[in-house]
């Protein structure tokens, strides 16, 4: 399960716009602390994943048998993989209510809470990856999480992922008509798995894998 001890202050500050050299003042640090304990109380992290064999990868398409995804970036991310996990994870609707409450009552807390939530869901996804690793058994290496909307991986594929994983029923994760995830503190991702010995060099992870060079949150 998600462990709030893993939440990194530095990451939370980064989501709030602080660079490594910037020193936050005590009031902000106190508020982060307060929002962390509130979130701990209200979040109900849930996840669902399924692992599928990859039928074939060609340039620009990934064939999963029941579905063919057209995306050069995803194909590149999955190159060398023979299985792929679909993961959906959410902090739950209690978290969403909390966020929406503070958006109405006190925006400074809403902004800080959002940043804490972002760190929480990222760390939760890390723990889900660990579960996927153990479901795969020995000898597999995972690729970085790759989500619909990254690069040319169509956001519309969100619908398929939600359907295949039956997320509304299993973990309460739904999509709006405009493809926004609700609860919003949620992640869907495709995670490639390559056999250890055959694995090609680890591709760029995290920010370096992303093409959005002008992103405010980019780590370099």
């Amino acid at each position: 399960m998600a462990d709030s001890k893993d939440w990194e202050l530095r990451e939370i500050l980064r989501y709030l716009g602080y660079k490594t050299k910037d020193v936050p003042d005590q009031a902000v640090l106190d508020m982060i602390q307060e929002m962390k304990s509130l979130l701990r109380e209200h979040m109900q992290p849930r996840r669902v994943f399924r692992i599928f064999p990859i039928v074939g990868i060609e340039e620009g398409t990934v064939d999963l048998g029941f579905s063919v995804i057209r995306s050069k970036n995803l194909a590149k991310n999955l190159a060398g993989c023979t299985q792929a996990a679909f993961l959906a994870a959410t902090l739950g609707s209690g978290t969403e209510r909390l966020v929406q409450k503070y958006r109405k009552m006190q925006m400074s807390k809403a902004v800080v809470l959002e940043a804490v939530c972002t760190e929480a869901i990222e760390k939760y996804c890390d723990s889900c990856e660990a579960e996927i690793r153990s479901a795969l058994g020995e000898g597999w290496k995972l690729r970085p999480r790759f989500s619909p909307g990254y690069g040319d991986f169509p956001l519309e594929y969100q619908r398929q992922m939600i359907g295949v994983l039956d997320t509304a029923k299993r973990i309460g994760l739904t999509l709006t008509d405009s493809l926004l995830m609700m609860p919003s503190k949620s992640v869907t991702a495709v995670i490639g798995a390559a056999a250890e010995e055959g694995a090609c060099a680890e591709p760029n992870r995290g920010c370096r894998a992303c093409e959005k060079a002008d992103c405010a949150y980019r780590k370099d």
Binding site: S93, E96, R97, Q100, I162, A168, K169, G172, T174, L175, T176, D177, S178, L180, M182, P183
Partner: peptide
Amino acid sequence: PTGKLLKPLGD
């Protein structure tokens, strides 16, 4: 269920 979240949380 419909698979959608109701307002005010969803749409």
